[in-house]
Design a protein around this nucleic acid. Structure first.
Lengths: 233, 233
DNA sequence: TAGGATTTGTGCGTATGTATT
DNA sequence: TAATACATACGCACAAATCCT
């Protein structure tokens, strides 16, 4: 047998995992996706039992997923009350964004991966998607493209701890971002995302990952500035 | 009643928490401490049942703690085999250290807290402890002082996401560090730790948190260099 | 104020997977 | 190869806490 169950790295996104591990990851990614796509907006109360029934498991393995999302700051559980999608304060939001801005340039410093033709094609496709989005803006569409862009960027470092840290803090703020803005800001933010991805695409085309990482930081900074002006603190 | 159960931030180190939350944190910190102090060296196989009996709880809440330590990369569980203290590869170890070196200077950039007299006293006490340690070097003593020093440093930023990230990556490497060195290196590393804390103490005394953060980075870098020379890759 | 409905937390027996004999 | 031992994973019933009437 050559299954070689090489358990060595993290347990969330490891290949060749057990059946239990695979099921855990599927449910985990599905629920996290629903949170980040605003299917479960901040403040939503989730039911362990309802989710367990939906995914065809008992409460036990489902609770394991909720524990994980809880430790990552995406959920909060209180006995007798329920499990609520985290709605972090503006202050905490800014702190996470400050760290994200510092992590961005590390993409080019810590084990950057070579930019291949596949990378260029991926960003070209994202650019095309963001073009479409500006023609028919929507909060859901914004989230989809935004998340895909994040992963395209994070995939450019081979430093897994860095990638994990970027992922953690991205998802902590992903769902709050649009929620903090009004519905009338969605179209503008879709255009901003389009501009952002255009810059990324140009940097990727010339293979300049250092420029890419600092563009990422710059656009993240600009996003926070727009949010602060909107919230006025 | 003025208990005010204000649940709002993270669940691991939050004050005014539920009885279940307090019990979770106590068990969590105890087991993590045993791992980082080499009471459970890398490769150790833990028993859910034995730990549950020791802490006077059933396996269910204990497993919640193990899941958390697993998600943080400190443990690995395989059905039918057991729960093993992670023994990460040299490659992964270097990646974590690379990130730690980049995070260190952020201590002075992201919401640094003012250095008070209490801070100075804390580092003075750490310096005294490290002096004692050089007179009677031991792996356990090294770990105790090293961990206390880390927390004294991390406490100097008010940016909680940064502090959490530092903590996560510190504990991922804390137990591996001494284990990768031989027993005959302990005395030398105790002296290095003493020198390190002396530098920290001097920087704290003059209130220069920027110097402090870069000293931290420098000493972390030197530690990795010594380890690489030892391991020869 | 009290009681019932609802939700998460806990305990325990069983199922499933692995390693060894 | 098969059986046995043992570890984690799972499902379910009950306890504890909270909220609302």
């Amino acid at each position: 047998m050559d299954k070689s169950p090489t358990k060595k790295s993290d347990d969330v996104d490891n290949k060749s995992e057990s059946a239990a591990g695979r099921r855990f990851r599927q449910i985990y990614e599905e629920i996290r996706s629903r949170i980040s796509l605003l299917d479960y907006p901040p403040g939503t109360r989730l039911s362990e039992e309802a989710l367990a029934i939906e995914f065809g498991v008992s409460r036990t393995p489902l609770r394991r997923v909720l524990f994980r999302l809880q430790s990552e700051g995406l959920l909060e559980s209180v006995q007798g009350v329920g499990t609520i999608v985290t709605d972090i304060s503006n202050e905490d939001l800014y702190q996470v964004y400050q760290l994200r801005m510092e992590l961005a340039p590390l993409l080019a410093r810590l084990s950057p991966l070579p930019i291949t033709e596949e990378t260029v094609a991926k960003f070209e496709d994202l650019y095309r998607q963001s073009e479409e989005l500006t023609k028919d803006p929507s909060a859901h569409g914004y989230c989809v493209v935004n998340i895909a862009t994040f992963h395209a960027l994070a995939d450019l470092t081979a430093n897994m701890p860095l990638r994990k840290a970027m992922e953690l803090h991205f998802y902590q703020t992903a769902s709050i971002w649009l929620k903090s803005l009004g519905e009338d800001d969605v179209a503008r933010e879709c255009r901003n995302l389009n501009d952002e991805i255009r810059d990324f695409y140009h940097a990727v085309k010339i293979g300049d990952i250092d420029a890419l990482s600092h563009l990422w930081r710059a656009h993240t900074s600009a996003s926070v500035t727009r949010l602060r002006q909107k919230l006025g603190d």
